[in-house]
Amino acid sequence: MTFVPVMWTVWGAMVLILASVWLYRSRLERDEEDQIFIDDAFSHERTAQAAIVERVNKVQPILRGMMAITIVATLFVIGYYIYDIVNQFK
């Protein structure tokens, strides 16, 4: 198997994983509300919102890591094609 299809397959898998984690975080944040609960009667709402924030905070480092890896992979793909163009003009 040649290098280019493997490179594009790895890049595509990384983008797919990044999109999946992004969508998961978006679904979690959809139920999050920006409210301040002053009264103790709404403690169940405060607990539910705290649980959502906790899950979003757990996903955030994974999202940042996948974003960094995908950016590096994208730069690698671009660099590979720039290198290929330069070699063709030699």
Score class of each variant (00 low, 15 high):
Ala73Asp: 03
Leu18Phe: 04
Leu63Ile: 02
Ser20Val: 05
Tyr80Ala: 10
Phe89Leu: 09
Thr9Ala: 14
Gly12Tyr: 06
Ala13Ser: 07
Arg27Asn: 10
Glu33Thr: 14
Gly65Leu: 00
Phe3Asn: 06
Ala50Glu: 04
Phe89Ala: 13
Ser43Thr: 11
Glu29Phe: 12
Ser43Cys: 06
Val77Met: 07
Val53Lys: 11
Ala73Asn: 03
Arg30His: 15
Ile85Gln: 08
Val72Lys: 08
Met14Arg: 14
Thr47Cys: 07
Arg46Phe: 02
Leu28Tyr: 00
Thr2Glu: 13
Trp11Arg: 05
Val15Gly: 04
Asp40Ser: 13
Ile17Lys: 01
Phe76Ser: 11
Thr9Arg: 09
Val77Lys: 01
Asp84Trp: 14
Ser26Lys: 14
Asn87Arg: 11
Thr70Gln: 01
Ile82Asn: 08
Val56Leu: 02
Ala19His: 03
Met67Gln: 04
Pro5Lys: 06
Thr47Trp: 15
Arg55Pro: 13
Glu33Tyr: 10
Met7Pro: 09
Phe76Glu: 12
Leu16Cys: 11
Ser43Tyr: 04
Val15Cys: 11
Arg46Gln: 08
Asn57Ser: 09
Ser43Arg: 14
Ile52Thr: 08
Leu16Asn: 09
Met66Glu: 11
Met66Gln: 07
Val77Pro: 00
Val53Pro: 01
Val86Tyr: 15
Arg27Met: 12
Gln60Lys: 13
Glu45Lys: 04
Leu63Asn: 13
Tyr81Leu: 07
Tyr83Leu: 14
Lys58Pro: 10
Val4His: 08
Leu75Gln: 00
Ile52Gly: 10
Thr2Asp: 15
Gln88Ile: 05
Lys90Gln: 01
Gly79Val: 02
Ile38Ser: 08
Asp39Ala: 10
Asp39Val: 07
Val21Met: 02
Leu23Asn: 00
Thr2Ile: 10
Val53Glu: 14
Ala50Ile: 06
Glu29Gly: 15
Trp8Gly: 02
Arg25Phe: 08
Met67Phe: 10
Tyr83Glu: 06
Val59Thr: 06
Thr74Asp: 03
Phe42Glu: 13
Lys90Asp: 08
Val4Leu: 04
Asp31Ala: 13
Thr70Phe: 01
Thr47Ile: 15
Trp22Gly: 01
Ala73Gln: 11
